[in-house]
Write a protein that binds this DNA or RNA. Structure first.
Length: 111
DNA sequence: TTGCTGACGAACA
DNA sequence: ATGTTCGCCAGCA
């Protein structure tokens, strides 16, 4: 089943602009549950069956590391997708995180 | 049913 | 600076 928390997570992730990334914790915080960041990751795990178009590769952990790449069809897919959007990945972590980090808070207002 | 695990993150020691 | 613990809670054995 899918609860509102999941739906909100999906909404936000789908709103992430191309060329930007965000973090699980940031999303959780914007949803009013700063300590439920694990659930955001869990939601991502479920996202592919809910809506395959969800850009889960744009969601990283707070350090900008590709912690979830093992959940993609291939381990290189997540990195490839990010690089295709202009990001630079090094040692499983994104570079210039400060410049590409997107704040989900601005999406909350839209929703 | 209970207990463990996990795409996280913050607080402690 | 590094390692451990805890909160969160949905799945799974």
């Amino acid at each position: 089943m899918v609860n509102d928390f999941y739906l909100d997570v999906f909404k936000i992730v789908k709103l992430i602009p191309k060329g930007k990334v965000t973090s699980y914790g940031l999303i959780a915080k914007c949803l009013g549950s700063p300590q439920s960041s694990r659930m955001v990751g869990y939601a991502m795990n479920y996202s592919h069956q809910f809506d395959p178009s969800i850009p889960a590769h744009r969601v990283l952990n707070r350090n900008g590391c590709l912690t979830g790449k093992h959940h993609f069809p291939t381990e290189t897919m997540m990195q490839d997708l990010l690089e295709a959007e202009g990001h630079i990945i090094e040692n499983n972590c994104i570079k210039n995180l400060d410049k590409v980090l997107w704040n989900p808070a601005e999406a909350i207002e839209i929703i």
